[in-house]
């Protein structure tokens, strides 16, 4: 299915593994890949939070970036990490992924260290983090999402190409598969990254600013994809910059400014007081906009939101 098509979810039930066969993720073609949601651990899925962070302190050289963060994030939600520049948002993601070693504290992903959960976690880095002049095409980049399941030395084959093409199709740019990646627009590049994460068939997605620098069409398409993921029980944790859309797009929010300011459901956590504690006093217009949106959403029926609200 295409990213840009309207979201197909309408039911309000708690997603079950059986939903996967009808959900958008598997629409049309049954997935040949083992679904991480059908894992044995699923039986006690509500016992283990998606992410558990304890006493986490991270520093570059002697400069602390994250300070004593404790965090527990539930599964099956769209979760925004929000905070000013230099608040440690990307660092938090990278620490969860084991890319940065913390000074103190630990992170658990579904109740275990990350290295035992690699195949459960998909990662979308910041778009600027790679060299888009690299000699490769869109399909090839998406295939990299499958490297994890291949492991060392094994080479991807025809089935993997097919799978990667499917993922490109799901983000609506299958026709760009052979396009050199520098010839893609910013929004298309972001879609390639999302397709690559989809190829990882993860249970939890960590995304570093997926909405940064994309046009309005792509933004809606990405949002619709995130909602598809949620409707099949996946968890998405995304660094997000646009405060005006936090309440509209996400279920949970983590407010971060080196220390954890607050974390919880958008309805209770994303309020003026917490935002001011996160951004200092510099946030009058945006805060009011966010408040207005929250109010509007509280009044409107919850059209956007499927799955367990």
């Amino acid at each position: 299915m295409s990213l840009s098509s309207p979201t197909t979810e309408a039911d309000d039930r708690t997603p079950t593994p059986a939903d996967d066969h009808h959900g958008p993720l598997a629409s049309g073609q049954p997935s040949t890949h083992p679904n991480p949601l059908q894992h044995d651990a699923l039986t006690d899925r509500h016992r283990e939070p998606a992410i558990e962070v304890h006493d986490l302190t991270v520093a570059y050289q002697t400069q602390p970036v994250l300070w004593d963060v404790d965090l527990c994030l539930p599964e099956g939600k769209l979760i925004a990490i929000v905070g000013p520049n230099g608040a440690g948002k990307s660092t938090l993601l990278k620490t969860i992924l084991g890319l940065i070693q913390p000074i103190t504290g630990w992170v658990k992903v579904f109740g275990a260290p990350y290295r035992r959960r690699r195949s459960w976690v998909g990662y979308v880095p910041q778009r600027e983090s790679v060299d888009w002049d690299f000699p490769t095409n869109a399909l090839d980049v998406v295939m990299m999402g499958l490297y994890g399941s291949l492991g060392w030395l094994r080479r991807p084959g025809k089935a993997h190409r097919h799978k990667a093409l499917e993922c490109l199709d799901r983000v609506g740019i299958a026709e760009l598969a052979d396009r050199q990646i520098s010839q893609l627009s910013g929004g298309q590049q972001q879609r390639v990254f999302l397709a690559r994460a989809l190829a990882q068939e993860a249970r939890l997605y960590l995304m570093d600013e997926p909405f940064a620098g994309v046009d309005a069409t792509t933004e809606r398409a990405i949002l619709s994809l995130l909602q598809d993921l949620r409707s099949t029980g996946r968890t998405v944790i995304a660094v997000h910059h646009d405060l005006q859309t936090v309440a509209e797009y996400f279920d949970h929010v983590v407010l971060l400014n080196m220390r954890l300011v607050a974390a919880g459901p958008v309805e209770t956590t994303f309020n003026t007081e917490n935002l001011q504690r996160t951004y200092g006093g510099r946030l009058t217009v945006l805060t009011q906009a966010a408040e207005a949106l929250l109010k509007a959403r509280a009044e409107a029926p919850k059209l956007q939101r499927g799955g367990p609200g």
Binding site: L97, G98, Y123, V141, M144, G148
Partner: peptide, 13 residues
């Protein structure tokens, strides 16, 4: 993969 995207490579092991 390590040349193109070292952080994804690291995340994938």
């Amino acid at each position: 993969i390590t040349t193109f995207d070292a952080s994804l490579a690291a995340a994938l092991g």
